[in-house]
Amino acid sequence: MRYRHIFFDLDHTLWDFETNAKDTLHDLYHIHDLSKRGIEDFNGFFDRYSYHNERLWDRYTKGFIKQDELRWKRMWLTLLDYKLADEELSRNMAIQFLDKLPTKKAIFPYTFEILEYLKNKGYNLHLVTNGFEKVQHNKLQSSGLHAYFEAVITSEASNSLKPHKEIFDYAFQQTGAKESESVMIGDNLDADIQGGINAGMDTVFVNHLNIKAHIQPTYTVYHLKELENIL
């Protein structure tokens, strides 16, 4: 085998963050009766949340803001779009969101099948994620993915974030892997693919959304089953 160690991203690559986040926010929408507070269209509300979440995550991965600010301000800014300047509600929703989100179980098609395939071929499977330690481990337990991975490397544990080389150095230290025998698989060009390149690894871009790549990966797949053509 060309590779011995496979490092996966979790959110948006295997675990369907968009579907699970929407389901979680829908729960909170009803718990807090937001339709009676001027937010009549849930889909519009989720679109605004996604807009702010994406931009705050970008700032977080670049080191401009801390975890706590990311967690509650994505709620705060979303509510502000509806003229609800309620910090207490924002903070409560932020806590509830992270309590409920990891219990959701939606994963991308062929996730279990590809992990089983790779495991049976003798690869060592690991995760490298910018997600929060407790949240990511809970997601793995709830979805049934935990059994497939030997090591779960989070930004919290490594004190670094993809695409920085330090999180991958920490991953190599924890797993005993070498960059020459490893491959990074993920959906995010700036975090996963650039991060793998920074670490000296080959990379696989999981292009679920069929977007144009502005960073050149070693391989590109559009469905997880296509990994069988590479590995």
Rank of each mutant, 00 (worst) to 15 (best):
R91M: 09
R91A: 05
R91Y: 00
R91T: 08
N92H: 03
N92D: 10
M93D: 02
M93K: 10
M93A: 03
A94K: 12
A94S: 14
I95W: 15
I95N: 13
I95Q: 14
Q96H: 04
F97K: 10
F97E: 07
L98I: 02
D99C: 06
K100D: 15
K100Y: 13
K100L: 15
L101R: 11
L101Q: 06
P102Q: 07
T103P: 01
K104H: 11
K104W: 02
K105Q: 13
K105P: 05
I107S: 01
I107T: 08
I107L: 11
F108H: 10
P109F: 13
Y110F: 10
Y110D: 08
T111Q: 06
T111P: 01
T111I: 01
F112E: 07
F112V: 05
F112G: 11
F112M: 10
E113T: 06
I114M: 02
I114P: 03
I114G: 02
I114E: 01
L115N: 01
Y117F: 06
Y117S: 13
Y117K: 12
Y117W: 00
L118C: 04
L118N: 02
L118V: 02
L118E: 04
L118H: 05
K119W: 09
N120H: 09
K121M: 13
K121H: 08
G122L: 13
G122I: 08
G122C: 08
G122D: 11
Y123P: 09
Y123I: 08
Y123F: 15
N124R: 14
N124H: 12
L125N: 08
L125A: 05
H126G: 14
H126D: 14
L127K: 03
L127D: 03
V128H: 01
V128G: 00
V128I: 15
V128F: 03
T129M: 12
T129K: 09
N130P: 09
N130C: 07
N130W: 04
N130G: 10
G131E: 06
F132K: 15
E133T: 06
E133I: 04
K134D: 11
K134R: 15
